[in-house]
Every structure is written in C-alpha cells, then in structure tokens.
Design a protein around this nucleic acid. Structure first.
Lengths: 193, 193
DNA sequence: GAGTATCTTGAACGAACATTCAAAAAGGAA
DNA sequence: TTCCTTTTTGAATGTTCGTTCAAGATACTC
C-alpha cells in the first residue's frame, strides 16, 4: 500500500483559484499542473478528469463558504450585526483585487449554463442552501425583534442574495471602495426596513 | 470590384447569440460558422480573427441595447413608468429561457476578466454609459417630482443597475416568474422611496 | 529486507482548436 | 464579352488541448 502524497484540500483550493482566475474552459491542464503542483497523471488518478476536479473543487468551495458563514454568524449575539459584518466582508473581498472577489459558484454558473446540466444543478443547489441559510438568519433576527415580524424571511433572503450577486458584478467594473460601501449600506437598510 | 454578400448586422447578432449561449472561450470557429453561415476564411477576412468578431459583436450589442433603452424611455411621458416597464422587461427576459436572458456584457466580463484588459475596458465603458443613462433618467424623474429632490441620481442609477445584475444572476438558478417579479417590485420600491 | 500494491512522472496520443492560404467564384467596369 | 478585383470556399497548417499509459519511485506489509 501507499498513500497519496498531496494535501487534497490544498490542491482543491489551488484548483478553485485557477478556475476563478481564468474560468473553467480557459484553465488548461498545464495551468492546473502549475497551480496544484500535480502532474497530469496524478490529477487524472485522483479526480478522473478536469471536470471531476471542478466537481470536487465546487464541493470544497461549498464547505469553505459554509465554514466562513458559520464563523460570521457566531461572532456576536445579535444576528443583524453579524449580517452587516458578512456584507462588509463581501465589500472588502470586492475591493481587494485578489481573485477571491469572484464567487466560484456564480462564475462557473455563468460559464457552464445551458451546457452542463449536472454542474448547473449542483451550483443551483449550493446557492439555494446559502439562500436558505440566510432565510434562517432573518428568521432569527425577527425573533430578536430587529426585523419586524410581518416580513417574509424567504423574500428577504432572496433580495439580500440578489444584492450580493449584483454587488459582485458591479464591483468588477467600478471597484471604488466608497461606492461599494454606499451600495452595501443601502442594501442593508432596504433589507431591514 | 465586388461587395461582401452577407448582412453584417445579422452576422454580428448571430455571433453574439453564440457567444452568449456557450461563452466566448467555448464557442469554436465551427460553432461560429454554423451560427453565422460564414466560412472561416470570410470571418477572418471581415473581422481579422475570433477576438475581432467579439469586439464588433460587443459594439453591435451596445447599439442594440441603446436602441432598446431609448424605445422604452420614449414610451410614455412619465419617466418612472418607463423605468418600471424597463425593469419588467428584464424580468420577462429572465423568465423566457432564451439565451437573451444573459447580458453579453456581464457574461463576457465574467469570462475575460483579468485576462484581456482591452475587452474589460470596453465592457466597463459600455456599462458606465448605461449607468449614466439611468442617472439621467432618474434626474428627469426628479424634475417630474416622482422622486424626491434630495436623492442622488448617480447613486440611484448604481443601485438600480446593481439590482438588475443581481436579478439576472438570481434568475439563472431560480427562474420562477412570481419570485423574480416580487424581487423586481421591491427593487423598484427601494429606488423610488 | 524482499515483495507488492499504489502513486508519481512526463512523454506520447489523437482530437479539436484558431488560423492560413491558394484556388474557385462572382460582381463591377470596360 | 472580357478582364480585374474582391470575396468565398474548404482543405491544410501548426498548435494546444484533455487524456492516456508505461516506466520508475515509494511506502506499506509480512
């Protein structure tokens, strides 16, 4: 017997960065070799093919984002404060020009839409889970009396997520921090109102 | 002498549809041949190369969208009603599952970001022009007393555009008409408030 | 420490890609 | 009609792509 040498999580994070930087189709096997440090044969041995690598990278991305989400929403007792922190973090990600600014999910969704139904379904499910997680937090904020009881948590979650999508796209052309901050501020206000 | 046989506008619209359907990188020359009806040689003769075709398609897209914009905003006297119609049209585009649902600009922006600075610049400029056009309309609505005078038209335009971006992305995973309509409705309300 | 199962390596593969080009076709001018 | 110029055609080009595979390396088992 012999175990694999590489750290799978590290490899997957390298791969997801590569995919986010250049897009899935434009990321060649050579790019992936350079990014992950794995030779083609190893990649095919571990992930079957390039698409398999994307699939596992998407799953790792989901886990990482879930951990990040939980971290933000266990920071303070007041849910709406955590929500604000989360949103501020999105803005900061957009401002700092590193590749993390783009969400792998929406990026891959844009690219593979209408072409690979299975991947589209996986991404949709991931985004739905995020939406549901937000809805739960809005429900919590209602219990904490920070959001009026007559609001629909599901709708708030959808609107909030829509705002984040829009913010990220907007940031790609106008990444001025003060403008993004202002947009995020209004989004936050509109959701609370 | 001899004139070219093909209708350039038709060819460009076919090409932009192909690019929107499969993405720029994933659209092969064979796809473009099938979509436009032009043989490779003709494409290279007329547009230099695949990238040149994208450049001209982007310009055609800008012209088409500008015409569409002007059509909507000359429909009625009240600017905010036209704004609402414009937004409803975005929702309708998202609901009908044809490829037009994705904006070529944001799609290409997502794909070529960080890779082709010139194209990124062109797209940014186009989106800035759209943003400015919205700002002008919001200013007009202020003059028509439908939006309070203390609002910042530029900010409203940015927020509105952000909402449209978000709506389009959201629609890719959850294209239920009533949900999108509800989101668009709140966006409209939040902008007017 | 020998045997073996598994992983790593990187050269090699066919396919598909964007691009080129020379020959054929066709419009315009005479 | 004839000639010239430009376009159209589609096969050919070299490159790069994702993928495979056989040989070498390595760690675990006994």
């Amino acid at each position: 017997m012999r175990n694999a040498e590489f750290d799978k999580e590290k490899v997957l994070r390298s791969a997801m960065n590569a995919f986010m930087n250049k897009g899935y189709a434009n990321t060649s096997m050579q790019d992936l070799k350079k990014a992950t440090g794995l030779h083609p044969g190893s990649i095919y041995c571990a992930f079957e093919n390039k698409r398999g690598l994307l699939l596992e990278a998407l799953e790792q991305y989901r886990l990482d984002r879930k951990a990040e989400f939980d971290k933000f929403f266990s920071a303070t007792e007041r849910t709406i404060d955590n929500l604000k922190s989360y949103l501020d973090n999105v803005v900061n990600e957009c401002v700092s020009c590193d590749n993390t600014q783009a969400c792998l999910l929406t990026k891959a969704l844009n690219e593979t839409a209408e072409q690979d139904v299975e991947i589209q379904q996986i991404i949709s499910n991931n985004l739905s889970m995020l939406q549901q997680a937000f809805a739960d937090k809005f429900e919590q904020a209602k219990n904490e009396k920070d959001i009026s009881a007559d609001k629909d948590s599901e709708h708030l979650a959808r609107y909030f997520l829509m705002g984040i999508y829009g913010l990220r796209t907007f940031a790609q052309t106008h990444p001025k921090p003060e403008v993004l901050t202002q947009l995020a501020e209004q989004l936050y206000q509109d959701v609370l109102r």
